[in-house]
């Protein structure tokens, strides 16, 4: 375990070095991220403004501060997706296509771990901080409107669900990588997932019927952002927490199985 933490530290260090190798890119990316992430809240704000103009305050039963908390979790996970998952995904797909995955497979460490931590974009930490800011701001608004402040149980539940959300996102990403062993170019699959992930910014009550099932079980966006936010807001019931934990465990097992099968099918690119 300690060895893998050291490996993670080495990989983070390299990503930081890579980011700083081009210093204007580093500064420019950081500033642009701050602007883009802040602007990301606009669609939510506009939707609630339109509701307010129509004399309504809630959207799908969520007040603006509550929806902002969901959006905060979305921003936090989007930072993880863009900061750690997508860069590694791009790197791995290239490794598979060119055959340099050989070098990763020759290393005496778990290949899935090495692949998962291949590359990060450190400036996305700004997004993560902004996401936490939205959560805090949303919670403050919720309390200001008479909501109960989160107790220890709610905080622990939200923490557990945030962990589940990260693992769910990670599992889906590994499944996408596994597809790359068979179809080589998976750009479209990753674009599809990134587009789908954008739905996670909305509270779960916005999705009804088949969409609700789709975003709970197939692409579990609801479990990733709405559940942690609801745990913090005191709206989540224990069975839902259990569902998220079990579903996360199942998807983790599935992704490990798929990874092993894909590795066995790997034929390496020609010399």
């Amino acid at each position: 375990m300690r060895r893998y933490l050291r490996l993670l530290r080495a990989s983070l260090r390299l990503s930081l070095l890579l980011a700083m190798q081009y210093r204007w890119d580093f500064i420019g990316h950081g500033l642009m991220q701050l602007v883009w992430t802040s602007l990301g809240v606009l669609p939510l704000w506009i939707a609630y403004q339109a509701r307010a103009a129509a004399g309504l305050s809630a959207l799908g039963g969520y007040s603006f501060p509550q929806a902002l908390t969901v959006f905060g979790f979305f921003t936090l996970l989007k930072a993880l997706l863009d900061g750690a998952i997508n860069p590694s995904l791009t790197a791995v797909v290239e490794h598979i296509r060119t055959g340099t995955l050989d070098f990763i497979l020759l290393k005496p460490a778990d290949a899935q771990f090495l692949v998962s931590t291949a590359r990060q974009e450190p400036w996305r930490i700004i997004d993560a901080a902004t996401g936490i800011g939205f959560v805090v701001f949303g919670m403050a608004g919720h309390i200001h409107q008479g909501g109960a402040p989160p107790g220890l149980g709610a905080l622990l539940g939200a923490g557990l669900l945030l962990l589940c959300a990260m693992l769910l996102l990670y599992s889906i990403w590994i499944l996408v990588i596994c597809a790359a062993f068979y179809v080589v170019r998976i750009d479209n699959l990753s674009f599809l997932f990134t587009s789908l992930f954008d739905f996670a910014r909305w509270p779960r009550s916005v999705f009804r019927g088949a969409l609700h099932v789709l975003f709970t079980f197939v692409v579990p966006l609801v479990l990733m952002t709405s559940y942690p936010a609801e745990a913090l807001l005191g709206l989540l019931r224990p069975p839902q927490l259990l569902l998220a934990v079990v579903w996360t465990g199942l998807l983790l097992c599935l992704c490990r199985l798929a990874w092993r099968r894909s590795l066995a099918a790997y034929t390496s690119a020609s010399s």
């Binding site: 050291r6 490996l7 080495a10 260090r13 390299l14 290393k107």
Partner: peptide, 21 residues
């Protein structure tokens, strides 16, 4: 094929391999 990180000096790849091995 190469394992050296393209944008960084080889010394950084050496350090990474030190951690991996």
């Amino acid at each position: 094929k190469q394992q050296l990180l393209w944008d960084l000096p080889p010394a950084d790849t050496f350090q990474l391999n030190r951690a991996v091995y």
